[in-house]
Amino acid sequence: MSLTLADIDRLAHLARLGLQPEERTRLCSQLNDFFGIVEKMRAVDTSGVVPLAHPVDVSGDMALRLRDDVASEPNQRDANQQSAPAVESGLFLVPKVIE
């Protein structure tokens, strides 16, 4: 299996990355090089192995810690928006969204 420029365009769009033409071709060959070393991994027999999503969950009994339902965050709109590119009357502005 080898990635084509069409695959690169599909992925770039999914990831919202505007790529320059030469970037497309460079990435295409670099990704194909990378997936070359991945082939070895695909060949490994992993039947019956439980995926490890959390590194310390070796015993498989790791449980999500829950917090009590308390609303305690103060309004920090100004501090939170200090690095926002475009704000008007407290709203983040973006180009018109058409549904």
Binding site: A86, E88, G90, L91, F92, L93, V94, P95, K96, V97
Partner: peptide, 12 residues
């Protein structure tokens, strides 16, 4: 919010 901002959308 699609109203009130000419050509733009406000996000709450």
């Amino acid at each position: 919010l699609h109203e009130d901002f000419i050509g733009q959308t406000g996000i709450d």
